[in-house]
Amino acid sequence: MRARAPERPKTPAAFLLMALAAVWMALVIVLPLVNVLAEAFKQGVQPYLSAIVQPDALSAIRLTLTVAAIAVPLNAVFGIAAAWCVTRFDFAGKGLLLSVLDLPFTISPVISGMVWVLLFGAHGWFASVLEASNIKIIYALPGLVIATVLVTLPFVARELIPLMQDQGTDEEIAAVTLGASGWDVFFRVTLPNIKWALTYGVLLCTARAMGEFGAVSVVSGHIRGLTNTLPLHIEVLYNEYDSVGAFGAATLLAGLALVTLVLKTLLEWRFGDELAANRRH
């Protein structure tokens, strides 16, 4: 079995399809992005730069990175564990488990924020415990993290499961048969095979975690400089009619996403041979 290699478009049909795709991408994705950039640089480079180094903007960036730095590794470890048990073993209730895994995709971000208030708010299930121990979850960093974790939970697992399903287990079983320990198998056989899918899942998860708005908006408390993440800070600036600041901050998120995604493409291209060699042994 071999996949078809991409080729230069030759037929009229190919050009028509490319034109259609180009128009659609332009209308739906490129124009909104260009618009964000145009608004950000409306008054030139200097106001743009001063907008993104304001202390409130910097603290929002720091908070956003902190939230992502906690939420993404958690979801990555979970994603690997979930993919391992779902693709390597058969057990009762696997279908149910997969449906629960997909649930966060179907939950409105508004609800993803609200459920944490129901649990940890001053009138929530755990209110008395939290009050007694003086732990703050909602309107503080932990609330932002768990809301983000819930929204981005399926990304890594969903990237890994189809790949690991396809790859099968023969290499791993071979390693075990030859006496390798479980962790050895994981680090020497499984991980090299899934590292690109893992990277991609982690990147998506990171991008989504940093851009999340609806859910964190419910649990943030909107304290400037303390609990406003970058997307929330953007909303604040926009509400202050500071469109240069708002869109300037938005370019950071868009830029970050583009850089990581282009980086991923480059990595694949650079290490593509190694990857192929890996797969062929």
């Binding site: 001053a122 009138h123 209110a127 703050k136 309107y139 909107h222 304290i223 400037r224 604040v236």
Partner: peptide, 20 residues
């Protein structure tokens, strides 16, 4: 003095739910 701004109703709910 830290500041939190948002829609009045939303801010009310937040204070009731434990915003300090």
């Amino acid at each position: 003095v830290n500041q939190s701004h948002g829609g009045s109703g939303k801010q009310t709910t937040a204070v009731i739910e434990g915003l300090d």
